[in-house]
Design a protein around this nucleic acid. Structure first.
Lengths: 242, 242
DNA sequence: GTCAGTTTAGGACATATGTCCTTTCCCAAT
DNA sequence: ATTGGGAAAGGACATATGTCCTAAACTGAC
């Protein structure tokens, strides 16, 4: 991690994501911009958190490691997203590991100032409320979805969700930076089983694999399998009452 | 549902749960107290929500029905808990079914007033933030837990969590109002499989079943099985920064 | 008590998924 | 091109879980 001393850039992000009212005058001087390289660890489970981060560029992976050593990838996040919010509100140690999947840019603010100047600042509170509510909603869906559907369906859904935002440009969606075993841990299954299902998909002509890369061939077929249950990414916030 | 016209009782609850600053002066006149009988439907999935409810007495069940007709019980809640909060923040239809598992008492307030008098009221926003953060935390744990552990472990954990708060008084924890098939839907398995696992537990002497009631015989044994992963209920709020 | 109907438990089998180990493939160093 | 090492894929088997159906237990009416 390195701090990026570029006030201009920071202001740009604040404007782009409409955060000017969220981080008002007294908070501004305490905002910093941080850069992370692909693979950098941004947060470590169990540590005492100090900063609230706002993801403004790049992609991160949230995961947790159980006492038995299994890894479960909880989510992949792209802007706009906040990390350290749950810990801030609850006053607990860091819950999960956070790692940069691409090069990443985040706005950071120390809890001290967030608390001192923000605890009564309604726009900030509403912002956090919306973000966390969104997280809850996604998590809740994800829970139901995982519990109710076999890996086959989850994989189809996952492939759709990943390739839709990755491959804006290229026609064929590919799995890019996310390794297959990450994918397995995200879907909540073993690498072995993931392979098995992928092979079925290949046979059915839904995807093709070439040198470890999965290429989606039949989005409609996958959609049919997935039902309408798509793992949600961050959708822009809709109409809210707040 | 019937409205309980008892200002005294309402004030009592507000005091008991320290909600006086959350619902400040302008909101007070719009608070009402509602009573539900066991089995009453409190919210219906898909409908337009109107009220934010605060559960102050009794026990409720949150569940969802998939398009294929499967039911998944998302959680059982006891005071202090809020429902309709996610919908309020996101401005969406009701997400899940909510049903009274015992006779239930809730404080209700129409979104209209909540918005009009509450949208800038920091204590209310902080309250919602804490509640939803708590929900997120529980949900997140629950997701990992379900994905990483077999039914056997989940059932052990479930039995422990249920019997700890039910049977404050009685020594033997029993499953009370919650039916076995509810339990199955909560754990995310089939009734059939639940039975299978219960039978194993019986054989191991962990529980006994008598006329459809499960009696926990060996809490330590169950704990060993569950690891430290206990489904969290609402724990009183800890130290928070807010 | 007896019976029909409903609820609850269990049997048999099929499928989904996990574990462990072997095989294959890829890439780099030589 | 050759070879060795490590990552990726697949085979074999065990276990976990789901589905469908049957058997057993309970309940209320008579």
């Amino acid at each position: 991690m390195k701090e990026i001393q570029d006030r201009e850039q920071l202001n740009h992000y604040l404007r782009a994501f409409q955060l000017e009212s969220v981080f008002h005058e007294p908070l501004l001087p305490h905002l910093s911009l941080y850069g992370f390289e692909q693979g950098d660890l941004i947060c470590t489970q169990g540590q005492a958190p100090e900063y609230l981060y706002v993801l403004v560029n790049g992609k991160i992976k949230i995961y947790t490691t159980s006492s038995e050593g299994k890894t479960l990838v909880l989510s992949f996040k792209t802007p706009l997203e906040v990390i350290g919010d749950v810990e801030y509100v609850r006053g607990t140690p860091i819950l999960n590991m956070v790692e940069a999947v691409s090069s990443v840019c985040m706005i950071g603010i120390h809890y001290r100032w967030l608390h001192k100047y923000g605890k009564d600042h309604a726009p900030l509170l509403r912002f956090l409320l919306e973000i966390i509510t969104q997280k809850f909603y996604i998590k809740s869906n994800s829970l139901s979805f995982n519990l109710m559907h076999p890996v086959e369906v989850r994989l189809a859904s996952y492939l759709l969700s990943v390739t839709s935002d990755e491959s804006d440009s290229r026609l064929e969606g590919q799995l890019s930076a996310v390794s297959l075993s990450d994918a397995a841990n995200f879907i909540g299954t073993s690498y072995r089983h993931l392979n098995r299902v992928i092979r079925q998909f290949c046979i059915k002509g839904l995807v093709e694999r070439d040198k470890g890369v999965i290429v989606v061939k039949d989005r409609n077929g996958l959609s049919a399998l997935a039902g309408h249950n798509i793992y949600e990414h961050n959708r822009g916030k809709g109409e809210t009452r707040l």
